[in-house]
């Protein structure tokens, strides 16, 4: 089982991101479980929020928040100053950050495996607004190979219709290709 924790701010669509992770994993032939943590201010726009997703080859029974994630997604770098986003990360875990800056520039601990992806930039170019969820999922698939781009396309088509679906698929594909070409992707490997 792989566990994903998403850090965002209220209004950025973190719950939908988690849902799309689950849908894409299911389309890729796996079991999934996606859920938000609401409360403690989590329903307010701009407040730090968390959402979670589990992906497994077996049915998933556990129903707790994810304390030791395999993957951590950070949607907003302003959270880095107020939250220990890396808390509990598994020894081989990875952090994927939405940023045009490199992991070095973001001052991550050198022991962490961090990759940055300019997802907001991609979203602004393709969607025209800074909703970077589908770009992040495209980048996630290219980096981790937990599911492929076709599964993401099916997941997006389940959730959205028409032009919104098309543009989001393009955003996911663009981020996916970005990572695969190694362009503009900054990674920080463990020493």
């Amino acid at each position: 089982m792989k566990e994903i924790r998403i850090h965002g701010r209220g209004g950025q669509g973190s719950v939908v991101t988690a849902e799309l992770f689950g849908r894409a994993a299911f389309q890729g032939g796996k079991y999934c479980q996606s859920f938000p943590y609401l409360g403690g201010g989590g329903e307010r726009r701009g407040a730090p929020v968390q959402a979670f997703a589990r992906i497994s080859d077996e049915p998933i029974r556990i129903r707790t928040k994810i304390h030791e994630p395999d993957y951590i997604i950070v949607k907003d770098i302003t959270l880095l100053h107020i939250i220990d986003v890396a808390a509990g990360i598994k020894p081989n875990g990875m952090i994927i950050v939405n940023s045009e800056k490199s992991a070095d520039e973001l001052n991550f601990d050198k022991s962490l495996n961090v990759k940055t992806v300019p997802a907001t930039k991609i979203a602004l170019e393709i969607l025209g607004f800074p909703i970077m969820n589908t770009a992040l999922i495209g980048a996630f698939a290219a980096i981790t190979r937990e599911f492929d781009i076709e599964a993401i396309k099916k997941a997006i088509s389940e959730k959205f219709n028409g032009e919104i679906a098309e543009k989001n698929i393009l955003a996911a594909q663009t981020a996916y290709d970005f990572v695969n070409k190694g362009e503009n992707i900054y990674s920080q490997k463990k020493p």
Binding site: G22, F26, F35, P36, G39, R63
Partner: peptide
């Protein structure tokens, strides 16, 4: 509530 109502799964 939440744990079952707001979780997505197959």
């Amino acid at each position: 509530g939440w744990i079952l109502t707001h979780t997505f799964e197959p």
